[in-house]
Design a protein around this nucleic acid. Structure first.
Lengths: 208, 208
DNA sequence: GCCATAATAGGAACACGTTCCAGTTTGTGC
DNA sequence: GCACAAACTGGAACGTGTTCCTATTATGGC
């Protein structure tokens, strides 16, 4: 287990967006996701083996598949949980910075730093997200919504609702961020290059 | 087989960038890639099964793995072949458009239209590219090089060499394009939305 | 409390990517 | 041509994601 995990993966008083089912079901779902985080943090995508997740979560393999219909669904749901909490945190505190660009850079750098602190977990989540096919569209949409929301909030913290222009820019930044993450995960670029690329892109997009 | 394939996958007088080995070896490599295109065009990522590729290319499974050490290597190499030819075509003819943005939009729309004409092939290539891990870094780098070259050429057709600024912008556009492709492949956005998103991003990035 | 139904456990079975091996063919230096 | 190395064939075997099945255990209505 990594000693100084930077990505929050445990919850005290579970209060996630999508709640359904009995307490036992929520508990199983949580145990499964916890096991997923633990295995992914230790060994990345390959270490998240469905049999291992089931055993660690103390559920049968069939039960695991009842909750998450595939390994990719499982990992994308895990990514959604990470971003959901990031969104909550971001909205709870004021984002520092005088310009949109500064605030967005601040937020994205914090997320990126967090993910780079858990490289194997990041690899697992990123690759799953990118490998997803149409059947995972719903889970992916949740991830995209959180990401866009985090970014539009950083662009215009006072607004209740984001303008269409902001949403477009936020999406582009999200695209660049994901691509940068993929490049970093696959060893094509260093952490420094990733940060610099992201910063340049944000400066280009928010230069008004 | 799709009747009006828009992505060029056949070559008359093979003259690719990376040539090595005997004629027989080049022939095998070509047969393998041809089989890959055929299977991917018909059934997408899942239909590109290593045993099926080997059989269609008339080589043993072990030989296939000698040429391409994994399914992802195989598909990313196929993507590299597509982009290599696109680059050749793009550089052969003058790109229409008065501004950088117009030219880039023209080029990207042509590529995008081509890929959308072969949705299953596109799905196979895109997902493989995105799923690649560090061991595929070399093949991925080839893809990135071609893409950047296509884009910098569209931005500044007369220049012999791209400026660092152009390269950065080209990379960002490439990032957006890939993300848009993923969104389209996974059914999260329509072809029209993909084109519009790309166009907006390019306009934002090349608005000077 | 009792029944009907759904959910879970436990594990076998299957598919496909990947590895490995023994035997055969092809290519190369002499 | 010959000897040797490299490449190729055909196929078995293994690991992991996924599916399926039966027995057992919670759950909710009466």
């Amino acid at each position: 287990m990594s000693s100084a995990s930077t990505i929050t993966t445990s919850n005290a008083t579970a209060s996630t967006s999508e709640e359904a089912g009995s307490a036992a079901q929520r508990d199983r779902r949580k145990r499964i996701l916890d096991a997923t985080f633990a295995l992914a943090t230790e060994g990345g995508f390959d270490a998240v083996q469905m049999r291992a997740v089931a055993e660690k979560a103390d559920v049968a393999l069939g039960t695991l598949y009842r909750y998450f219909p595939s390994k990719v669904h499982l990992l994308v749901s895990a990514l959604a949980r990470v971003l959901e909490r990031t969104e909550t945190n971001t909205r709870a505190h004021e984002v520092p910075g005088d310009t949109s660009a500064d605030r967005v850079i601040f937020v994205m750098k914090r997320i990126t730093r967090g993910m780079q602190g858990d490289p194997r977990l990041t690899e697992a989540l990123t690759r799953a997200f990118m490998f997803a096919d149409a059947s995972v569209a719903q889970e992916i949409h949740v991830v995209g919504t959180h990401l866009t929301s985090i970014l539009t909030h950083a662009i215009r913290p006072d607004a209740d609702e984001a303008t269409p222009e902001d949403v477009v820019i936020a999406r582009v930044i999200g695209d660049v961020w994901l691509s940068a993450l993929v490049a970093w995960v696959t060893g094509r670029s260093t952490a420094a290059q990733t940060g610099s690329h992201l910063e340049t892109a944000i400066a280009l997009l928010l230069r008004d």
